[in-house]
Amino acid sequence: MSACRDTQRALDAYVDGELDASHVLHVEEHLVECSACLERVELARAMKRAIRSESRSVAAPASLRARIAISAASERAAEVEEARPPRAPSWRSALPWAAAAAIAIGIGGGVGAMGDRHGGSTAPKSELLASAASLHLIEDLAGPHAQPLPPEELDPVRIARVFSPIVGVPVRPVRLHHERHGSFSFTGARLLNVSHEPAASLTYNAGDRRVTVVVFDPQRMPKPSCCLSRRTINAGGEERTVFVGRAKGYALAVYERDGVGYAVSSDLGENEVLAMAADL
């Protein structure tokens, strides 16, 4: 009885190989004569093995390897830049475009462009494919706000230098204002995938209010036509098309400006994100 208790107390350490030799001997002497404790050990081992084999049946996806390769290459490039401060910024030539192309999978043939700039040339194969792609796009664009992850970078200079070549468009933290909530402070940026393409999310907050701006290359994304409504707003004297609606429980406004795609999501209302879209 007491030998059983001792064995049970040592059971985890025994099956995990953490028990020292003299105790192992002690346990094994008991296991020879006690089938109940042997049974406990066998079950613990069987469970351990099952957890291991069930868990190790997955391999890291190729897209993850590619994404890490891109980030690692840009880190190396940034380290080289920092080691040689007087050089003019030359990330366009220094960064791994070939690596960036590796994750440019796209969705089917439906990589239509947002806005009218590229309309027609890369039209989606079918309406269904287009709306499926568009639905995923919207979920991806709203995702970083709905499930925020820790930022990778805070320094605006490094963000512009490191993130821009990966995303394919300039990535810069902007000044974000709201008439009622005042000035939003920038809390950081990180890279993510939107429709299997690299994009950057910039996060802001004012008190407990959060705003996430996803910056992406609209040429690589399908048009967010489904699920969002198309509005034309006045942005500093010029007309701008904005797709606005709700996704993952948050207000979302998606638009293109000067060849850069923006998706503004917030726990504020649709009118507020629309107003921010007009300001940005």
């Binding site: 993850l64 499930q147 992850l149």
Partner: peptide, 16 residues
């Protein structure tokens, strides 16, 4: 998806 983000972040941290 979150696992990919986690491994990415951890890997970059390790490299740094």
């Amino acid at each position: 998806t979150v696992a990919e983000d986690l491994v990415h972040d951890a890997t970059i941290k390790a490299l740094k």
